[in-house]
Design a protein around this nucleic acid. Structure first.
Lengths: 214, 214
DNA sequence: CAGAGCCATGACACTTCATGTCATCACTAT
DNA sequence: ATAGTGATGACATGAAGTGTCATGGCTCTG
């Protein structure tokens, strides 16, 4: 035995996503996935550490790519400047080569299953750790590095969610910038600035016309 | 059979924490935990949905308590004002009745096991969802509510981590305020200019507070 | 071309997690 | 007392995940 199968991983991922969307994550057994891919159960666990990982393969490299992008950025950039300039390019690289349709199908499967949502949280946590280390390597103090990393990941996560909600209409860089602007607006004017009136805040919101979700 | 056991849940939690710290989460089997507590395996899963939950029982009520605290706060408070004023009291209520020693032991067990760290992320995610709904109920727009919820939870999480790192020395309210101040400093001044004057801060804020689409 | 070695896979056994189901015992209310 | 309620024990079962070895194709080398 042991005949080699072309694209075994890819076929397992495809079969798993199809089945998860069709009958749900819990209702889908690993033997069902491997049967559809023409493989055995044992082979599934050679490619993926557990059943959830089949939807998260290929993202192990994201933290290290994030670290590389940060190391390549101009050292003069402060944390928030780096986030403002680097988030969109980083997102572009992360999603490079994946169709919007695939991303929507994948998200639908993840949203439907708490265990997969949890795994998704871990992905963002790993991104945050990479970012935190990247900021520290740029000379940022520990607390600020941690905060900046969380700000970056949170902005990224919310922007991607909004972008997918809108089926990709305002493109991802634009959605990221809108989200980042709203984040800055909230933290700068959202209750800590006695000098701005409510009218001023309304003015900011009206300028974009894109800040309301539903 | 079926003799009632006083404090079955508590004894299971205690036995599990002891065993997790002693031999690790993976190496500890559910029968080991139940044997130490004088119960059967089946009873364990009647009290906890899965093996991890034994360290997270009693936190199911946190989201609803967060929602209550938000509803009780003065409606005039903006999102950031509410966070600044409400985070410390909320933390006090959440940790009410738990000793620092217990919190440290529990964190040690969680930090040692990826599966438990993941469960911890879900806890914060649930808190964030409750906060988001709370902000919406106060009339905040969807995007701002989501962002404010994430800011609040992130600040809380980082502050608690720092507080435990320091074995509770600066007390939790003080640590929360420090963390919140660092967060504000980062988002307002970019985290790279600690020497800006108040006037410079206002100028910078106005310059970067604009929303740009592309 | 032949043999050696590598690597992915198949096959099988095994442990642990988790759940469904029913019987049993204690406590409680009438 | 008797019935009801609720927690537990006991048993069976399925699915997840791992260890181990055999097998067959592939490449590298002489």
């Amino acid at each position: 035995m042991g005949r080699w199968q072309p694209g075994a991983r890819e076929r397992l991922e495809q079969a798993a996503l199809d089945l998860f969307l069709d009958q749900g994550f819990t209702e889908t057994t690993v033997p069902q996935i491997t049967a559809r891919a023409g493989l055995t159960t044992r082979t599934f666990f050679r490619h993926f550490a557990d059943k959830r990982e089949v939807l998260f393969a290929g993202e192990e490299s994201v933290p290290e790519r994030v670290a590389r992008l940060m190391a390549e950025a101009p050292p003069s950039l402060g944390p928030m400047e780096l986030i403002a300039e680097g988030l969109a390019p980083a997102a572009a690289e992360i999603f490079e080569g994946r169709s919007l349709d695939y991303l929507l199908r994948r998200r639908a499967a993840i949203d439907a299953e708490p265990a997969l949502r949890e795994r998704e949280l871990r992905k963002f946590s790993l991104m945050s750790e990479a970012l935190e280390q990247g900021f520290r390597d740029r000379g940022v103090d520990d607390l600020t590095a941690r905060l900046a990393a969380e700000i970056a990941v949170t902005t990224f996560r919310i922007a991607v969610a909004r972008w997918l909600d809108q089926h990709g209409d305002p493109d991802l860089p634009a959605t990221i910038n809108q989200t980042l602007a709203a984040m800055r607006h909230l933290t700068s004017h959202g209750g800590c600035s006695p000098f701005l009136t409510t009218h001023d805040e309304d003015h900011h919101r009206r300028d974009t016309g894109q800040l309301h979700d539903g």
